[in-house]
Every structure is written in C-alpha cells, then in structure tokens.
Design a protein around this nucleic acid. Sequence first.
RNA 1: GUGGGCGUAGCUCAACUGGUUAGAGUACUGGAUUGUGGUUCCAGUGGUUGGGGGUUCAAGUCCCCUCGCUCACC
Length: 376
Amino acid sequence: MFEFKLSAVCGKTGARAGEFVTPHGVIKTPVFMPVGTLATVKAMSPRELEEVGAQIILGNTYHLYLRPGMELMAEAGGLHSFMGWNRPILTDSGGFQVFSLARLGKITDDGVKCRSHIDGSPHMMSPEWAMEVQQILGGDIAMCFDQCIQYPTTRDEATQALERTTLWARRSKDAHNRPDQALFGIVQGSAFDDLRVRSALELIEMDFVGYGIGGLSVGEPHEDMYRVLDVLNPIMPRDKPRYLMGVGYPPNIVEGIARGVDMFDCVMPTRNGRNGTIFASFGRMNISGKKYERDFSPVDPECDCCLCRNFTRAYLRHMHRCGEILSARLCTQHNLRFAIRLAERAREAILAGEYPDFIKRFHETFKDGPTNEEQT
RNA sequence: GUGGGCGUAGCUCAACUGGUUAGAGUACUGGAUUGUGGUUCCAGUGGUUGGGGGUUCAAGUCCCCUCGCUCACC
C-alpha cells in the first residue's frame, strides 16, 4: 500500500510524473487538491468535483474536530461516508490553524492551548490529538502536527519551530497506528536554506510515506519559495511524494513542479472564485469589471468547464454583482478545473519529455495584473 | 385654499447656538486574498447643500421669493 511509482522525470528540470496508490484509488501526479475544510469543497457537490477531475480533496482536522465533532464523525464512519466522497482524502493536521488563528493560543513543546474561534471554548492540540482526530476522520493521507511560522521571522524563531516540528513529527509517528492511512512529515525552516535542509534530513531519518513542505506561501517573495524548493529538491527521497502545502497560484504550481513537487493544495481557486476572481489560460481576471458588462464571449475559450461551455462573461458578471449563488458555484467550478487541468497538462508534458517547453509557453500566455490580463 | 414639516453624494442620513477644504454607511470603479469564515481589507470616483436673491468678515445653517414632496385642518 501507498506505493509511489515514478512514471517519468524531466531531464532538464526537477519535474516528475508519478502514481501514488492509496486505499481509495491511484493519484496521478502532479496533482492539485481542492480544499474542503468543513467536509465540503465550498459550493461543489462530490459529483461536480468528479466532473472537474478532482482526484483527491482535503479535509481539516481542527475545523471538523470543532464541528461536527469527533463523536459524530466516528458514528458517521469517517469523512468519506459522511460526505459521500469515495476518492482519496488528505487531512490537514491543524498545525496551520494554530498559525492562522493564532491570537490567543499558547504554544509549548507539549502542544497548543487555544480557544475555539467559534465559541471560545478551550482546547489542547498536540501531535497525539492530531493523530487521534485524523484516524477517526479516516483520510487516506494524514499530516504530522507541525508548527507553521510567520514570514518574515528570525533565525532563532525559525530554528525553534523547526526543532519543535521534528519533535512533534516523532510523536505523531509514534501515535499513528492506522495502517490504511499514510502519514506525511512536514518540512519547516522558513526561508533559511540550511534550516530547511536540517528539517528535511531529520524527517527523512524517520522515514515517512511522503513529505509536506510547509511554512511557504505565507507572504514570502516567490524567489524565496523557489530557492527553498531548489535546496530541498536534491535531498528529498526520490521515491516519495512531495507536497507543497498551501500553494495554488498558477505560476507557483508550474514552478513548483519544475522543482520536484508532486502535490499542491490551495484555497485560492475556491475562495477567489467566490469573490469573482478567475484564473484562466490567459491569466487572471476579475469578472466584476465594468469592461465585461457587454462581453458576450465565454470566460475562457480554451476551458472545458461548465461555465465556459455554457455562459458568457456578461451573464456571469451580472450574477456576481447580484450576489447570486450560481456565480460562486460556476466560478469555483471553473477555477478548480483550471488548477486541476494545469496539473494534468503538466503531467502530460512531463510524460512527453516537454516540460521545459511547457513552462515557457505557460509564462508566455498566463499574464497577471490589471494592465495585461485579457485576450486570447 | 390655510397652517406646519422637510429638501445635503445614485440611495439612507450626519454637520453643537452661523466659523477650516460639507462627512459616514451603502452603491459605483479599481486592487488584494496561497495547509478557507461565501468573509474581510485597501484605494478611488461621486456635491452649484432643490433654484434665485439678500444679511454677514463668513451661510448647508439666518431672512425673502420660488419650485417640489409631505402632514394636518376646511
């Protein structure tokens, strides 16, 4: 179980195409994983997720622990049956929520004392807690409890978080005993190259099924992200999947793949979709723009999603401005399709031995920013 | 017809007894969002204070005329 088979490796970049075997199916990599924090990818039914080609989705330990709670999750028979999704699931460990909801949390080597963002009730999160919850949720892949840290940070703070993350990885592994669930370690170390190497080596020593790269996409410049990936690429085990956590900005995906990353997840397609920001083959656009008022062309002529095949920009803009639910659904569907297809196309390019060319073409066509978005 | 009240940004309303460059919310325009709160944040456009005249160093504010809306009473 959990075999990771490399199908092709790019000769000029670090890009890899592989297949990762899990209890709920084989995941073809590189892969983009939609985020479904509360046992639902917002605005998408499982059926629609399959339609956009989602191979695996995320669930969130911290959020599901608070609501609906573990007693109910156990009674439901785990996340798969609870939400009616029978493809693979990866559960986040809650470590990131310690970071993102940090306000009144107190972090020690033991774990994190924090208060619920819903009702203020006190809770204790720890590696043991994270493993217990994730094993009840029953995802195909569980993540170690880690300490994510803000950017920028001092070397001392980054070192402390790294050491704690290693400590917690050991405790996570000890507490994890579900053989049908893979456990991934998480590399920390902020933007310090040597700390990243140290973190990775300490985790590799423990021999996890796969490795998350955490603590990136927290506001650092893209060069920092790419450099860290460049540093990690040669030392990460070749035969294990690598997961760049929280990354979903399309250029980051393309460049991440070039640096050996196999898996990505991000809220960007779904959250931005709900707010009318669309990622398309020509770049980024915001559908609320006045310039689309009378634009009766499809959002992205090169896209095969429900939105692009059936509706116009003018119609979508109208719905979005009115706050209509369908706008959120269609934009979400499109953005997910785009991210997933981006990974799919990258995979095809890698298999064909054409990934460097793929990168070049992507950067030529995907334009960001308000001035040079547009046109196909 | 008579008497009272009210007219300020597209909309809903601020601006102490006259005192800097008439503000806010919303709407509108543009931007942001990276291991999720359909949220939120940032920036910008927008005014002959219904119209006209007068008093005053100074008028959204006081006086006169006029237009419009509204309430009460014949």
